[in-house]
Nucleic acid binder design. Structure first.
Lengths: 242, 242
DNA sequence: CGCACTCTTGAAAGTTGTCAACTCTCGTGG
DNA sequence: CCACGAGAGTTGACAACTTTCAAGAGTGCG
């Protein structure tokens, strides 16, 4: 943990609204000592005595739901700087779970801790509400994506979204970012089979839009990829989006 | 407008939390004089100088999004007693629209009016937050439905949800309710073609689960239909659900 | 080195979409 | 009162998309 380590959650909130120095310092303190959680661990039910509220400092996670058919549907990704269920307005019925995709560093908060944070710091409270609204808009966007677009566009849209979200927290370097999401995960995200995801990715490669090797995705032609996906990033409410 | 006409929005909120007599009376007053809007009219952009916030008194509407491909994706239905965007925490980026499915009676409110309502009446504010959380849970449920279930289960799930929601506001009579949603609408809801929706409905009929003639849907075998759809109504947070 | 996981590929089957036509219902106008 | 026309539902044949099954290749870690 280098001293220069940025606080991505603070960075995330500051990309949405201005925070006072005091607010920022507080966030730095809250995130000073995250838990280390291994890949494939259940992030929420594992800590649900604390209410399941968390901030992801490092690593990837996803929110999902198991169907009785055995199918898994991923309903959201959490990337560094994202939070889960911090909007105090929510009373989580826990009809879904959150799992670490990679090993993860995360801060787990109780409902009471979030409440105190919000009461004393209106800007932070406002930021958490904003984050909640963005999550909801993203959920709607995924519904439109899965319901309305064929496989190629669907996967392309997902990559466009990850690109912009990771870019916003400084995790995109030269159109290239680490994406530790397997094709099986992508399949359960997009409502496709993993075989078809594989073929779809190959088609994206063949069209010269992306390069994907191991865990590293490179956007080779962002304009074309975004055009193919009909990607309009407004829903992410980024300040300076490309 | 008979004197016995129930206020379905009040009924909806009271199904979620207790309201004082004063709160209830206020809601009756707010809803006393709804606008009449014809079918196929745009409910939100038409009134968007008022911020697009509304309460549906009578009739059906839907929230949707047009893709550049020309496809329409419906992302939510509004039934009598439902509201749209009343949760004051939201700042609607209006990346979607709301259209009347039938002729509709609706009350349109400004952001300021909602704010006053909420400030003076904490229970109502809490109710609006709850409604917002339920809408979000429903959105997630639709994502799981479309992403994870084949056509037959998908349509069945949609019917199960409509049944319970309409039941909650007193619009189900003897397992039968009016459902003015065309097969074209269902197609754009479920991410299917209208032809396939038609064949799927015929299969549901063949299995003896539903009867659907004109605008009237009868649930012939609710347990089997819910089992087929893997329908778990918890997300709707109904008091007394069957 | 070997196991576990992931990625890739081929062939066949299943699901869903497209196209086109026909029927039905219902409200309007003649 | 009946004809007409628009919107909605239905059907068949075919095409396209996507899944399933099965097997092999690549990769990284203990």
């Amino acid at each position: 943990m280098p001293a220069s380590k940025v606080n991505r959650f603070r960075r995330r909130l500051e990309s949405l609204l201005p925070l006072s120095m005091a607010d920022g310092d507080l966030l730095d303190r809250v995130l000073a000592d995250p838990d280390l959680v291994p890949a494939r661990a259940d992030l929420v039910s594992r800590h649900d005595r604390k209410g399941g509220r968390l901030i992801l400092v490092d690593g990837f996670a996803y929110q999902y739901r198991m169907l009785t058919s055995g199918r898994r549907q991923i309903t959201a990704y959490l990337v560094p700087g994202d939070s889960y269920d911090l909007d105090a307005a929510r009373e989580n019925g826990s009809d879904h779970a959150v799992m670490a995709l990679t090993s993860v560093r995360s801060v787990h908060l109780t409902t009471a801790e979030v409440a105190v944070l919000s009461l004393d710091h209106p800007s932070i409270a406002e930021g958490l509400r904003l984050v909640g609204r963005i999550e909801e808009a993203t959920l709607r966007e995924w519904l439109v994506n899965i319901g309305g677009r064929p496989a190629l566009e669907r996967i392309a849209h997902l990559f466009c979204e990850l690109d912009r979200r990771l870019h916003a927290v400084g995790l995109v370097d030269q159109d290239r970012f680490e994406m530790p999401i397997t094709q099986y995960d992508l399949a359960d995200t997009a409502g496709l089979s993993s075989v078809h995801v594989n073929r779809t990715i190959q088609e994206l490669r063949r069209q010269g839009l992306i390069a994907l090797t191991g865990r590293s995705l490179t956007i080779l032609d962002r304009p074309s990829l975004q055009a193919l996906a009909d990607f309009q990033p407004r829903y992410l409410r980024l300040r300076a989006s490309a």
